[in-house]
Amino acid sequence: MIGKCIDFLRHVRTELGKVTWPTRKDAYGSTCAVIVLVLIMAVFLWAVDLLLSTGIKTLLGG
């Protein structure tokens, strides 16, 4: 059992060595893009919510 765990961890280490890790610049750029898109979606959903809630209040007369 211990031997299988050690063998597994060796394979994991080998596979991690094959991974192409992003540079700091790439990671920063991707993070900024995600944050900007999340903010855009938040504003869009806020506007849709405001529009729909105003419409429903108008329809219900209140």
Rank of each mutant, 00 (worst) to 15 (best):
33 A>P: 02
55 G>C: 05
60 L>V: 04
24 R>M: 08
39 L>M: 11
50 L>C: 14
32 C>P: 00
17 G>N: 08
57 K>F: 06
29 G>Y: 03
52 L>G: 01
27 A>F: 05
27 A>V: 02
17 G>Q: 10
53 S>Y: 05
10 R>Q: 13
8 F>M: 14
60 L>C: 04
38 V>E: 07
62 G>W: 12
15 E>P: 00
43 V>F: 08
2 I>S: 14
36 V>S: 09
46 W>I: 14
54 T>C: 07
25 K>Q: 14
10 R>T: 14
33 A>C: 07
3 G>H: 04
30 S>A: 09
31 T>Q: 06
31 T>G: 06
26 D>G: 02
3 G>V: 08
25 K>F: 06
20 T>D: 00
48 V>K: 08
51 L>F: 07
1 M>Y: 06
57 K>L: 09
16 L>I: 11
18 K>W: 03
16 L>Y: 02
52 L>Y: 06
7 D>E: 15
45 L>H: 02
45 L>T: 12
30 S>P: 00
18 K>E: 10
38 V>Y: 01
10 R>E: 15
46 W>H: 13
51 L>P: 00
19 V>A: 01
18 K>L: 08
22 P>A: 00
28 Y>D: 13
12 V>E: 15
10 R>I: 11
46 W>A: 15
35 I>G: 09
58 T>I: 04
54 T>K: 07
42 A>F: 08
31 T>D: 03
51 L>D: 07
47 A>R: 14
34 V>A: 11
42 A>E: 09
13 R>P: 05
59 L>P: 00
62 G>I: 12
6 I>A: 13
23 T>G: 05
7 D>A: 13
14 T>L: 14
26 D>W: 02
10 R>D: 15
20 T>S: 03
2 I>L: 13
18 K>H: 05
24 R>I: 06
21 W>R: 03
58 T>V: 09
23 T>W: 02
35 I>Q: 11
45 L>N: 10
17 G>Y: 02
37 L>A: 11
57 K>E: 12
50 L>G: 13
27 A>R: 01
23 T>K: 01
3 G>S: 09
22 P>Q: 03
62 G>Y: 08
60 L>F: 04
60 L>P: 00
35 I>P: 01
32 C>K: 12
9 L>Q: 10
21 W>V: 13
37 L>R: 14
26 D>T: 05
45 L>F: 10
29 G>I: 04
57 K>H: 05
35 I>H: 07
11 H>M: 15
36 V>L: 14
18 K>Q: 11
40 I>H: 04
45 L>D: 07
48 V>A: 14
16 L>C: 08
18 K>A: 11
37 L>K: 03
2 I>Y: 07
45 L>A: 09
24 R>C: 11
41 M>R: 05
13 R>A: 15
50 L>D: 14
31 T>S: 05
3 G>P: 01
16 L>W: 01
49 D>T: 15
5 C>P: 02
28 Y>R: 12
39 L>F: 07
12 V>R: 12
27 A>Q: 05
20 T>M: 05
56 I>A: 04
47 A>P: 06
34 V>Q: 06
42 A>Y: 06
24 R>Q: 12
38 V>N: 07
10 R>K: 15
34 V>M: 12
26 D>R: 01
22 P>L: 01
40 I>W: 06
24 R>Y: 09
